[in-house]
């Protein structure tokens, strides 16, 4: 069991190196059209083949990866941050604040998330920031729920009561004494969330609602390949593989972190 996260971490680091440093090593342009190289299969000149406009897939994977990872990390960060603050406050203040929390979470959960995404994206044309915003407001509920139930347990502890009697400010208690204890859950759901957000973005891009040209993400490259899947498998295969590798390693790491935090709980 110990070797698995190591494999995942190695995979994750190599994907990160590939997307952020790859363009220094592999200098082929991701945007140049080439009418002599349309839908060429993988070969020594084009390692992952070319697409319908003769663009090099490998170079496009490097460019597109930056967008995918940025959206993944950005929206997971915002989502788990909203979840942390909102969930911790609900557990701390209880009463009406907590009741309103439950209503709002239920509201978001009853909404079909993907429909909400689709509806929002069809109004606002997608840019990186819009996508980050949209994905994060549809993804914070699970973190918030987990953190709420945990912070309920913390708020009954004696030292929190003492802090309250000592008239320490609410925001200080939440940020200084609640947040550190909730950190393990935060990191677990953050790594998990990055994977989930990358999946959500690629799903939207697959439907043609994600990032617009000339920018690209793994999802949009894959989506461009779906019409030619029967004659050129490589256009969709490689970006999909990248999405799969990064989410798989992230989710593996997240599950490992979770077992670690569980073990700590059992020991204490």
């Amino acid at each position: 069991m110990q070797s698995l996260p190591r494999v995942s971490i190695a995979l994750l680091i190599s994907v990160l190196l590939f997307t952020f440093l790859g363009s220094f090593v592999y200098t082929v342009s991701a945007y140049d059209l080439n009418k002599d190289a349309i839908l060429l299969g993988p070969s020594m000149t084009h390692f992952c083949g070319t697409d319908r406009l003769g663009r090099d897939i490998l170079a496009r994977l490097i460019e597109g990866g930056k967008v995918s990872i940025l959206i993944g990390v950005g929206s997971a960060f915002i989502a788990s941050f909203i979840g942390l603050i909102y969930g911790a406050s609900a557990g701390y203040f209880r009463g009406t604040f907590d009741k309103s929390f439950v209503v709002i979470v239920d509201l978001f959960l009853t909404f079909p998330t993907f429909f909400l995404l689709l509806a929002l994206v069809s109004y606002i044309s997608a840019s990186i920031f819009v996508l980050i915003f949209i994905i994060s407001i549809t993804a914070w509920m699970t973190t918030a729920r987990l953190i709420r139930s945990e912070s309920f347990a913390i708020s009954t502890k004696p030292y929190i009561k003492i802090l309250k009697i000592a008239k320490v400010g609410d925001s200080k208690i939440i940020l200084k004494y609640f947040a550190p204890l909730l950190a393990p859950i935060f990191f677990v759901s953050f790594t998990f969330g990055v994977g989930g957000a990358i999946l959500a973005e690629s799903g939207l891009s697959f439907l043609g609602l994600g990032i617009t040209a000339p920018q690209m993400s793994w999802g949009s490259i894959l989506s461009n390949g779906k019409e030619v899947i029967d004659i050129a498998w490589w256009v969709s295969f490689f970006p999909g593989l990248m999405i799969f590798i990064i989410t798989f390693s992230l989710i593996n790491i997240s599950s490992y972190l979770q077992t670690l935090s569980n073990k700590k709980q059992i020991q204490s």
Partner: peptide, 24 residues
């Protein structure tokens, strides 16, 4: 591992791979 695999597999990618393999 199978569960994590299924969790991180994008549905459209799996669908495309299956189409590629079983249909094409």
């Amino acid at each position: 591992q199978v569960a994590l695999f299924s969790f991180s597999m994008p549905s459209f990618y799996l669908a495309l791979l299956m189409i590629l393999f079983f249909s094409i």
